[in-house]
């Protein structure tokens, strides 16, 4: 049943969220979120639009203050702990004229941990080159970012997140704006990265998510996560209004486990 083979020693938590509530004005967006992400996890978070997926990522990154609850990253506060996180933001329409080269974009990942007003050391340059090689973008390192395709840009953003040698990679809809084939390439890349880096990914592309991640969580204000890849009936109820095509024909991967007619699930 359980696909991933956990090492015998106890799991090593990298992110611990306890009793997290986030609200905008009086409207609560996240309610009582409890989540433990362990080392080498690859978690896909799905859920309807407005279900709080991006909000949860923002809270993890310290981009917004939780109303209640605690977040620890590598046992530290968010502001300190996020040094261990590589963040790949959601695709945004940006100024295609912006004068910045691929190499300079990737360099951004290094800025926080180093002193300002110093030249990059040879080692730092190597880190950037290596990150670009990892995502197979080394050839285009001198291109202006505006000249790249959506998929190429996504790879550059992943490289940027990798330069800080993160323990954890957080991705917000990494395949939102690319065609399915490119999306497949990106997921393959992520699976490779996951050999050394823990990944938490938000997506509403459930089909893709289910065939690449190790475990799935459902977020619709509340989080339904059991550390497994199974999407339970409870999860489905939670995201009932969610426009996800759950039972697709010819899908190579089974999302719903066999269940009897009255809807009860046998795990």
């Amino acid at each position: 049943m359980i696909i991933e083979e956990k090492p015998i020693n106890t799991p090593n938590p990298v992110i611990e969220v306890k009793g997290l509530w986030v609200s905008y004005d009086a409207q609560s967006v996240l309610e009582d979120i409890n989540l433990t992400v362990n080392e080498s996890d690859f978690i896909g978070l799905i859920g309807p639009n407005g279900g709080g997926k991006t909000t949860l990522l923002k809270a993890l990154l310290g981009l917004l203050e939780p109303t209640r609850g605690t977040i620890r990253i590598m046992g530290k506060s968010v502001a300190e702990g996020r040094c261990h996180i590589g963040y790949v933001p959601q695709y945004i329409e940006f100024d295609r004229q912006f004068p910045i080269r691929v190499w300079e974009v990737v360099q951004m990942g290094l800025l926080g941990c180093r002193k300002p007003f110093t030249r990059l050391s040879a080692a730092e340059r190597e880190v950037i080159d290596y990150a670009l090689k990892q995502v197979e973008m080394a050839d285009l390192s001198q291109r202006p970012i505006g000249e790249l395709s959506g998929g190429q840009r996504q790879r550059v953003y992943i490289a940027r997140a990798l330069t800080s040698s993160p323990q954890i990679l957080l991705l917000d809809e990494p395949t939102a704006s690319v065609d399915p084939q490119v999306a497949g390439n990106i997921y393959d890349l992520l699976r490779r990265i996951n050999q050394t880096v823990t990944i938490v990914m938000v997506s509403h592309d459930m089909n893709a998510v289910s065939s690449y991640v190790k475990s799935i969580g459902c977020l619709n204000r509340r989080l339904h996560y059991h550390g497994s890849k199974e999407v339970t009936q409870e999860m489905m109820d939670a995201i009932y209004e969610c426009p996800i095509d759950l039972i697709a024909h010819g899908l190579p991967h089974r999302v719903l486990s066999p269940h009897d007619q009255n809807g009860a699930k046998n795990v």
């Binding site: 981009l63 040094c83 963040y87 926080g112 941990c113």
Partner: peptide, 8 residues
């Protein structure tokens, strides 16, 4: 946003 997250 990214700059903020990497503590710039």
């Amino acid at each position: 946003t990214f700059a903020f997250v990497v503590n710039v």
